[in-house]
């Protein structure tokens, strides 16, 4: 329908639907379609999404680092004030613990010297030393569905995909995405985390699987394996991805053949963590063993 405007001397075209109305109807649909396409693309072919995610993480890591520091400091002070009333009891406990640890330290030094001399006698291949990259957790973006954290250390600091990340007491996760300045760590409790482990004190191997809850479960255990409550679970080092003998958690419950393991560290309150630069045998990593 074309009609001449009465007010203006020039022509104007009156559409049956105004541009504003069309925009109001079209724009939400366009963006909803784009969002659905994003989900479908992520599910079917996630390489470009991964690239964008790494770039965005790299870009925002300095912002997170700057914003999270005062927040963490303030929250730390709140915790300090809250714990003030237990200060005396805490001090006595620490003095006692320190005395006990000193004894263990002396024992450990003696055992280490003994172990080294025995290994030399047996011509045992010494495992390489680990290098640690200490960093701070700057974002805890997991929420209800993903258990992961961001650390402001990336490839320029020597962080690589697959490296183990340990907290104060034990393994907390594994690096899964590495940018230049920042990396994403998948926590051991995430649904996609599967770690080859050993039940300490036995030679029983299993896979420790995350469940997106506070605990993990032991899978593929030998039938005769019945780890007791409190038994420690350590990494087995199988596959060469993670160093062996890093403590991961302790058995907290057994129900109907399912063994639940709680991580040693409180994963909701991670502060500083260490990325283990584990120089595993390159032949193990590539799977190409030289013929003798």
């Amino acid at each position: 329908m074309v009609k001449k405007s009465k007010k203006n001397s020039g022509f104007s075209i009156a559409f049956p639907i105004s541009l504003q109305g069309l925009r109001n109807r079209f724009f939400p649909l366009l963006f909803i379609f784009m969002a659905v396409s994003g989900v479908v693309l992520h599910k079917s072919y996630d390489a470009p999404i991964m690239q964008i995610r790494i770039a965005l993480t790299d870009m925002t890591a300095p912002v997170f680092a700057a914003v999270s520091e005062p927040l963490q400091a303030a929250a730390g002070r709140i915790d300090t004030v809250a714990n003030m009333r237990d200060l005396r009891a805490e001090n006595m406990r620490l003095v006692e613990e320190n005395r006990r640890l000193q004894q263990w330290y002396d024992t450990a030094l003696r055992l280490e010297a003994e172990n080294r001399s025995l290994k030399t006698l047996m011509n045992f291949k010494i495992e390489p030393d680990y290098r640690f990259i200490t960093t701070r957790v700057v974002a805890d973006p997991g929420g209800s569905f993903i258990k992961s954290v961001l650390i402001p250390a990336g490839s320029r600091d020597g962080v690589r995909n697959g490296q183990a990340v340990i907290g104060e007491k034990g393994l907390v996760g594994r690096v899964v995405e590495t940018g230049r300045n920042a990396s994403r760590v998948l926590l051991v409790t995430d649904l996609n985390a599967h770690i080859p482990v050993l039940i300490e004190g036995t030679r029983h191997k299993a896979i420790l699987a995350g469940r997106n809850t506070g605990t993990m479960v032991l899978e593929h255990m030998p039938l005769d394996s019945r780890p007791g409550l409190g038994a420690r679970i350590v990494t087995s080092g199988d596959g060469g991805m993670l160093p062996p003998h890093i403590p991961v958690g302790t058995v907290v419950s057994r129900s109907g053949g399912t063994v639940h393991v709680r991580p040693l560290d409180d994963l909701d309150k991670l502060g500083y963590v260490r990325v283990v630069d584990f120089a595993a045998d390159s032949a193990l990593k590539t799977g190409k063993l030289d013929s003798p």
């Binding site: 784009m34 969002a35 396409s37 994003g38 964008i52 965005l56 993480t57 973006p141 993903i146 961001l150």
Partner: peptide, 14 residues
């Protein structure tokens, strides 16, 4: 938000 958190890209936007 989805990209930073690690959720399916576009899920929260949708």
């Amino acid at each position: 938000f989805d990209l930073l958190v690690g959720l399916p890209a576009g899920g929260t936007a949708l």
